[in-house]
Simulated scan of single mutants.
Amino acid sequence: MPVTCIASAKSCGVTTAALALTMASARPSLLAECDPAGGTIRAGLLQGQVSAGYGLYHLAAADRVGPVELANAFASHLWPLDGQAGHRRALFGLTDPAQAAALSRTWPALSDVLHVMAESADYDVFVDAGRLALEAGRLHPTLTPAPLLYKADLVLLAVRGTEQALTLTRHLIRPLRTELEDNGTGAGALGLLLIEDGPFRSHQVAEALEAPVLAVLPWDPDTAAYLTAGGKVPRGFARSPLLRYARTATEQFEVIAARRQVHQHDPASQAHTQLAGILDRLAHRGGARG
Rank of each mutant, 00 (worst) to 15 (best):
D82K: 07
P67M: 05
D63R: 10
A75H: 05
G83C: 02
F92E: 10
A75C: 08
V68R: 01
R88K: 15
G83K: 04
L81Y: 08
G86D: 15
R88I: 14
L81W: 12
A60W: 09
D82L: 11
A61P: 01
A75F: 05
A73G: 13
L91N: 08
L91R: 09
P80C: 12
A71I: 08
R88D: 11
P67A: 07
A90T: 13
V68M: 02
L70C: 06
W79E: 11
R88Q: 13
R64V: 07
P80H: 08
A61F: 05
F74S: 05
G83A: 09
D63F: 07
L91P: 13
F92D: 13
A73P: 09
D96Q: 07
R64F: 02
A90E: 02
A73W: 00
A90R: 08
A90F: 00
A71E: 00
R88L: 14
P80R: 12
V68T: 15
R89H: 12
W79Y: 15
L70W: 02
A71R: 04
A73R: 05
D96F: 04
A71D: 12
L94S: 08
G86C: 14
V68L: 04
L78Y: 02
V68N: 03
W79C: 11
A61L: 08
G93E: 08
G86W: 10
G83Y: 04
T95A: 06
R64I: 01
G66P: 03
L78A: 09
R88C: 12
L59Y: 14
L94I: 06
L59C: 13
A90D: 06
D96H: 01
A60S: 15
L94H: 05
D96N: 09
R88G: 11
G83H: 00
L81N: 10
N72V: 13
R89C: 10
L70V: 03
R89A: 13
A75V: 04
T95C: 08
G66H: 06
F92Y: 11
G83L: 02
G93M: 05
V68P: 01
F92P: 13
A85F: 05
L91K: 01
G86N: 12
A73H: 07
L78E: 06
P67C: 07
R89Q: 15
A61T: 12
P67T: 02
A73I: 04
L59R: 07
A60C: 14
W79M: 11
L94R: 00
H77W: 03
L78N: 02
D96S: 07
A73K: 09
F92H: 07
N72R: 14
G93W: 00
L70Q: 02
A90C: 15
G83I: 08
D96V: 00
F74A: 01
H77E: 03
D82M: 09
T95W: 01
L94N: 03
E69M: 01
A71N: 06
H87A: 13
F74I: 00
D82T: 14
A71Y: 04
A60I: 14
E69F: 06
V65L: 11
A62R: 06
R88S: 10
L91D: 11
T95G: 15
L91W: 03
A61M: 06
G83R: 04
L91G: 10
